[in-house]
């Protein structure tokens, strides 16, 4: 298989498999989680929990002074990822092709800035995972896996755009394949939080609220 065949495979069958696995897997996961329902409250219910649920969604998104460095780094790469995924011009072409809706991408230098920033922030989160003894003990293989599959698309995308390392065609193919790995990992790893984080936070918040726990 030569590089152009690899690229065509990544853009064709590879993308098809990844899309199908991701969409099917995530849908199934959401249904599964929702259908589990909630344990019956045996104690007297102290409220509906609706406002507490919403509050938790917001609260958990706010920075916490205790770990401000780590949280800032996390913020940077989450925002960076969103910007890079949805506003790099070639990506907007893909979304237009898939969803039929188009929005304007941002200039390359902006994307470049966010990519470098995100890469640096992700490196920081990894290093801090190693350095901080508590987090090192808590970290499992699944955490490192999640980090790697998120990091790869960023780095390969950056290298492809700047024509670094191997030739562009191969690099582009590798980049697309790394994204497909990320897509496949979404429903089967901790990365599911990308779509379940609001649900999970609302659940925790509202349960706490019904039990009268201040959150």
């Amino acid at each position: 298989m030569n590089e152009i065949e690899l690229l065509n495979w990544a853009r064709g069958p590879g993308l098809a498999y990844a899309t199908i696995i991701m969409v099917f897997g995530l849908t199934l996961r959401v249904f599964e989680i929702l259908s589990l329902g909630r344990a019956e409250e045996l104690a007297e219910v102290r409220g509906t929990g609706v406002s507490d649920g919403w509050k938790m969604i917001l609260k958990r998104s706010l920075p916490e002074p205790r770990h401000w460095k780590l949280i800032t780094a996390s913020y940077i790469f989450h925002v960076g990822l969103l910007v890079v995924i949805f506003f790099f011009i070639p990506h907007t072409q893909l979304f237009r092709d898939v969803f039929g809706i188009f929005w304007s991408g941002w200039p390359n230098y902006v994307i470049d800035f966010f990519t470098v920033l995100s890469i640096a922030a992700m490196m920081y989160t990894l290093v801090s995972r190693f350095v901080d003894p508590t987090r090192r003990i808590l970290s499992k293989m699944s955490d490192y896996f999640a980090w790697v599959v998120t990091f790869l698309p960023l780095v390969t995308g950056y290298m492809a755009f700047h024509r670094l390392g191997i030739d562009y065609t191969t690099m582009l193919a590798v980049h697309i394949l790394s994204v497909e790995l990320l897509m496949i990992s979404l429903p089967v790893s901790k990365l599911t939080h990308a779509i379940t984080f609001t649900m999970a936070r609302y659940y925790t918040g509202s349960t706490n609220g019904r039990r009268g726990i201040q959150s």
Partner: peptide
């Protein structure tokens, strides 16, 4: 940067299958 084939269609099919399985 676009896919070869029809990713939108695959996604819709997978979504339907996901809802059914869910």
């Amino acid at each position: 940067s676009t896919g070869i084939g029809n990713p939108g269609q695959w996604a819709t099919g997978a979504l339907a299958a996901g809802v059914a399985a869910g």
